[in-house]
Amino acid sequence: MASDADSTATIASLRESLCSEVTPLPVRFRALFSLKHLARHETGDNALAAIDAIAAAFTSPSALLKHELAYCLGQSANMAAVPYLQKVLADLQEDPMCRHEAAEALGALGDSGNLDILREFRDREGEDVVIKETCEIAIDRIDWENSAQRKAEKLRQSDFASVDPAPPMPNSDSEQTVDDLEKTLMDVNQPLFLRYRAMFALRDLASPPDLPTAVPAVLALAKGFADPSALFRHEIAFVFGQLSHPASIPALTSALSNLEEASMVRHEAAEALGSLGEEEGVEETLKQFLHDHEKVVRDSIIVALDMADYEQSNQAEYALIPEAPKVAA
């Protein structure tokens, strides 16, 4: 295993890469994913140093990078991330995409101590609808995390290690079909948290990609791009990025190509296509948007093309350091 001194030096080096405005964006993203791994798997001072290193980059002008910082802090399972996330959420001058991600990250951490600030911005007069909806889901997630209901539920083992905005629907005696889940997914009269649960249940039915339910589940999820909520549509694109299923390419291409679509949706569609970079035509599609009118989309295309390049290479890991902790011999 790496010594404390080695870890300290690694974190310092990654922090320098992440926080440098002259470092290419794809390199900064790779440094960030490495720091996310360390924040989650290191202990004590090294974990805190990794969290501080991630948070130090909130000074960047890149909304894309800052929203990814917030996401990574939410995945850290470390309450030391809370003050940084609360500060981003409370900053009314910050990009709504970053504030939304900070609220979602507070929900992912699952601590009921964050309920007050989430309620404050859910109920704030004049607040951006994306922030209100995110806070609503985060509150429901924290309530679920700390409920007796959670202990009683049997959840299908997911292929994905992410802490999601909502858990998938629980397994029940009468297994829900793709059609059942699609109905819940698309029912705008249901709470967003419940619809998200259907979304993540459909995701899990689409992995691995050779499951008989995979293509039907992807096609059901794609219908979510017609939802009136930009937040909901962006989460569909995020899920497609996790799945990297070729059946999602037409829907993702359509979302990216729609110049009237919200930038938070288009950026997520671009990154999802990046994860499918080895599929025919995807790289060419991405390159068409290198000079998009939205900066967050342009930045996402740069990162997505780097991901596509990785998908076509023999590199062992996308991040700068291995994603799995080394085991001592």
Rank of each mutant, 00 (worst) to 15 (best):
A108L: 11
L219D: 05
E120R: 14
T285V: 15
T43M: 13
A2S: 07
A247P: 03
A269Q: 02
L276I: 08
A50M: 12
I321V: 14
D159C: 06
I142F: 08
L69V: 08
D128H: 13
I321H: 11
F200C: 07
A31I: 11
L181E: 04
H67D: 02
A304W: 08
H291K: 11
G277N: 04
A77Y: 09
R30L: 10
L259S: 07
S13H: 07
V178M: 02
S13Q: 11
A237S: 10
P61D: 14
R195S: 06
I142L: 09
D164K: 06
A161N: 08
V239G: 00
R15I: 05
S7Q: 10
K326Y: 04
D143N: 14
S172L: 10
A55Y: 09
D143G: 01
A251D: 00
F193E: 04
C135L: 06
D227W: 01
L221V: 11
A105W: 01
A50Y: 03
A80L: 10
R141W: 04
E145M: 15
F58C: 11
V297T: 06
L65R: 05
P216T: 11
A269R: 06
A217Y: 02
P168N: 08
L69C: 09
D52C: 03
A103L: 05
A308V: 09
L273K: 06
